[in-house]
Design a protein around this nucleic acid. Structure first.
Length: 234
DNA sequence: GAAATTTGACCAAG
DNA sequence: CTTGGTCAAATTTC
């Protein structure tokens, strides 16, 4: 059945339209390089989304929700099941849900990289790391910090590019349903110096010298403030 | 002490 | 069986 579902088609049109619009804006008004970069990232993200949708046209989910269906149906999860993990250590949904995913490529070595285009203002918690076949560096798995508290299903994967250490592929999966209480510094803790550029962790993307010998410092990352783009949403 | 990360094991899909 | 994704105990950091 190579017929694309109505929902997928709608998403495709949406993504492509977004990319087209961003391209138009980019052509019409060339503002700062920052805005330009954001636009380019948006275009790339849209294209990636469209491609992903096209590749997994077999999203044979049951009800193609129009976006208003609350996906919480397994709240009973791990309540009583504790030490006996023999049988079903967890009953996931029978079928793995295909959450929408998109990839963003960010480079650190570039002049300025900002992650303000697609909202990385969430707090991530690492829950795993795996070596991927063919990839030189392991892939880190992150999920939203508020998964326990608010049941936010969003996750992301961060992987370094094989060749360029400074290129990171961040794959986001799912949508955030949490409220961002990312108080970076609630009452400005008296001990946190504002000049900690060395071990910057941008929302879970913590680059620490993994290679003890190949300590390649990522140059200097300017203080990354999230609002790189004043006009985030269209 | 709480929250986050590390790391090995477990499990599902191809 | 291999590979990728997640869990959870142990460990580290705040």
């Amino acid at each position: 059945m190579e017929v694309i579902g109505e929902w997928e088609r709608k998403l495709l049109v949406q993504e492509l339209s977004a990319g087209q619009e961003a391209a138009k804006e980019l052509l019409s008004n060339a503002e700062n390089s920052v805005a330009k970069e954001a636009k380019v990232q948006k275009i790339l993200a849209s294209i990636s989304n469209a491609l992903s949708l096209l590749r997994q046209t077999d999203a044979n989910d049951d009800s193609p929700d129009s976006g208003c269906r609350s996906p919480l149906s397994d709240d009973s999860g791990k309540s009583c099941a504790r030490p006996s993990k023999d049988q079903d250590r967890r009953e996931i949904s029978k079928k793995r849900k295909m959450l929408p995913q998109w990839t963003e490529r960010i480079g650190i070595s570039s002049d300025s990289w900002c992650e303000g285009s697609l909202g990385d203002r969430y707090t991530w918690r690492k829950y795993g790391q795996k070596d991927i076949l063919g990839a030189k560096y392991p892939r880190g798995y992150y999920r939203c910090t508020h998964r326990n508290s608010q049941g936010c299903p969003a996750t992301k994967q961060v992987q370094r590019s094989d060749d360029d250490h400074s290129i990171f592929d961040i794959t986001y999966r799912g949508k955030h349903t949490c409220i961002y209480s990312t108080h970076r510094n609630p009452t400005n803790s008296p001990k946190s110096q504002p000049e900690n550029v060395l071990d910057f962790k941008a929302g879970g993307l913590n680059i620490k010298t993994e290679a003890p010998e190949n300590a390649e410092m990522i140059g200097s990352c300017p203080s990354f403030s999230f609002p790189c783009t004043p006009t985030v949403d269209s």
